[in-house]
Simulated assay, not measured.
Amino acid sequence: MEESNGRKKTLTPQQAKLKAESYCAYQERAQQEVRDKLYEWGLHHDEVENIMTQLIVDNYLNEERFAKAFALGKFRMKGWGKIKIKQHLKAKRVSPPLIKIALEEIDLDEYEEKLKEIIKKKTNKRTTNLSLTEKAKLIRYLQSKGYENEIIFNIISKE
């Protein structure tokens, strides 16, 4: 959205509110993402905060709903573990209590099943007779996906 002279086009508060509503309706958003967008569209602090309040009141924005959708989505679609999900929610400035609520949405049995699935894929279905190097590589990979050491070691030792 650039004008021909290279400057960014600024929106009126009403235009920005409408655009923010469709931005939020498209998918769940963190409050900080929306706030950043409003500033990007050339609005000032008071206008941004008024629009944010209106989006929350009208239920376009709901931080808890966003956190839950984000956590379940990243877990189910990308196979992320709780550590990585937590880091990404923190980066989006979601509050610690909401991060805790979001992570509690992930069913422990489903979590362990997903981890076993990732291990099977990564090791071509075998976990017995892995060399120490292969085991270390597997553990590092699972840590990078955001899984906790305790759960990784429990599952690897059972398999």
Rank of each mutant, 00 (worst) to 15 (best):
N62G: 08
M1K: 02
M77K: 11
E150G: 04
L103F: 05
L115R: 01
E33K: 02
P97F: 01
L18E: 14
N149G: 12
F153D: 14
L103K: 10
E148W: 03
G79S: 04
Q27V: 11
K125N: 15
D36T: 03
Q143H: 06
K82D: 07
K90L: 02
K68I: 15
T133E: 14
S131M: 02
A69I: 10
F66I: 08
A30E: 03
E148D: 09
G6L: 01
N59V: 04
I139E: 15
E2A: 03
H44Q: 15
E3P: 09
E112Q: 15
H45P: 04
S144P: 06
E113A: 05
S4C: 09
Y111M: 00
Q54K: 09
L43N: 00
D107P: 13
N129L: 05
K137R: 14
W41S: 00
V94R: 05
L98W: 13
D107K: 06
S22H: 13
K19S: 12
H88W: 02
T133R: 08
F66Q: 10
Q27F: 09
I56V: 14
L132Y: 12
T123D: 12
E104C: 07
D107I: 06
R7P: 03
A16D: 08
R93S: 06
A20C: 10
A20V: 09
E148M: 05
I99D: 03
L61V: 07
Q31W: 07
F70Q: 12
P97E: 06
E110S: 13
A69W: 13
L38K: 00
K116H: 13
C24D: 03
M52R: 02
P97W: 01
K121V: 13
D58M: 09
T12G: 03
D109W: 11
Y141F: 11
R29M: 04
I56M: 14
N50S: 11
L72Q: 03
Q14E: 11
L108P: 08
N62A: 07
E2H: 03
S131C: 02
K19Y: 11
Q31C: 10
I118L: 14
N154C: 04
R76F: 04
M52D: 03
C24G: 02
K125V: 05
Y26V: 09
K82H: 03
G73L: 04
T128V: 10
I51C: 06
I119Q: 12
N50Q: 13
G73K: 06
E2T: 06
K17Q: 12
I119V: 15
R76H: 06
E159Q: 02
R140D: 09
Q54R: 10
D109C: 07
E104Q: 13
S157D: 15
K116S: 15
E112H: 15
D58R: 11
L142S: 05
